[in-house]
Design a protein around this nucleic acid. Structure first.
Lengths: 233, 233
DNA sequence: AAGTGGTCTAGACCACTTG
DNA sequence: AAGTGGTCTAGACCACTTG
């Protein structure tokens, strides 16, 4: 399976931007020009530009052309931080229990989310993170083996899954949702809370350049954890 | 300028989903089927499905088909949006009950947070927001009278507090925290949920150029609301 | 008038999943 | 074998912006 042509065009433009050949505000080649340069149909060149626009790399305007966008600053709110780092920054002690670290197979839902085939193998880990000895996060994570083949050999007591994955498959994108749930018996036992107490559940899908890296579900006791953000306009 | 055909197809599918004709997990018509049904080329039907997938409305899988995604509302953590707008954008109907809209005085905590002196007057409102008649947010808000002197004269049934405040004191900054709590008897009654069900609680302080504008506490039923974000690096 | 992006067609071949 | 989505072509007409 070779790289699609629209992807080649995207890559070429991205690299021109990161090398400074194209700067924010510069006009990039038009659909017709790209079609000619890369010997593809206009629809294929168009797709490359459309996807770059979706990713916020270019801005497009009918009649005018496509232009390199400003490099968006990363807002501190949305930053994904390693929990061990976060705890260390508060001046507290991080520790954890690795409950599971195994190979298993993808059910149809996990397969869809991770970009695997149903039944294909995946790595699974389950860890409880503690701050000064008090459990604050129950992490369950499903990992795409193609992105991190040595996942099962890691010692997560010294280096968290998040830290390890960031090193082997640098984060390019993340999708997350936050919801409130009740602790089931399992959550209650691992987190040392009451059953049916309020929990904050974060579901996070992380992407690297080559695709989906992992799918993490993070459960926090509602009375010991909050998410904060500061937004500037 | 007429509506593009792919937009018509998207709208038709969205409406089937919101009417319950299609439920999460259901398979939607294939590209070829939609092309035939709507008398368009496959590329046009395809575009409709692709955009719905981008919006998180459907999940697509080669060889399998396209499936309706989990349709629980997901709203952005990183952006503060008026709930009425948010609901309208999902194609649903917003309505609300104004429970209270009064002048009261600041206790020491509120005073500190709003930059007032203890005992100084402040405005207080309490509203339940509904999406298609179903309660999804219980909003309690304390407002700095200096920033919005006419707050008590507003009709929040037609213009939400958030929309009104944005107009009179444009948002320059916001601080928020997200946590999980259990519904108390009052929450349960106003939101129509069980007591001790999981709730998402957002505490938000908004700032304008001249200082703190308001302090809002937003309670959402955990099973009807999610927060989401998409991060690009 | 010439160029840009926006929409659309009617085909094609492919990889993938299921019966 | 039949159906699905993924990629791609070579055209077309359109609305929009600029010289």
């Amino acid at each position: 399976m070779s790289t699609p042509r629209y992807a080649t065009i995207k890559e070429a433009l991205r690299s021109q931007i990161s090398q400074g050949i194209l700067s924010p505000g510069d006009r990039v080649s038009s659909e017709n020009q790209l079609a000619a340069e890369f010997s593809v149909s206009r629809m294929t060149a168009r797709r490359a530009l459309l996807e770059l626009a979706e990713d916020g790399v270019v801005l497009r305007s009918q009649g005018l052309g496509s232009f390199v966008a400003d490099n968006r600053p990363i807002s501190s709110i949305t930053q994904i931080r390693d929990i061990a780092e976060e705890i260390a920054q508060r001046g507290h002690q991080h520790s954890c229990h690795v409950l599971q670290q195994i190979e298993t197979s993808a059910d149809s839902t996990n397969a869809l989310q991770l970009g695997l085939k149903p039944g294909e193998r995946l790595f699974y880990s389950e860890i409880v993170h503690m701050e000064d000895g008090v459990p604050i996060q129950h992490e369950t994570r499903r990992v795409n083996p193609r992105m991190a083949p040595d996942y099962l050999a890691q010692d997560f007591a010294t280096n968290t899954p998040s830290a390890y994955l960031s090193a082997v498959a640098p984060l390019t994108e993340a999708e997350q949702s936050v919801e409130a749930t009740l602790a089931d018996a399992d959550n209650a036992a691992t987190l040392g809370t009451e059953k049916n107490s309020a929990c904050l559940k974060i579901t996070r899908r992380t992407f690297s350049e080559r695709g989906v890296v992992s799918l993490a579900v993070l459960i926090h006791p509602g009375d010991r954890y909050r998410l904060g953000s500061h937004i500037n306009y």
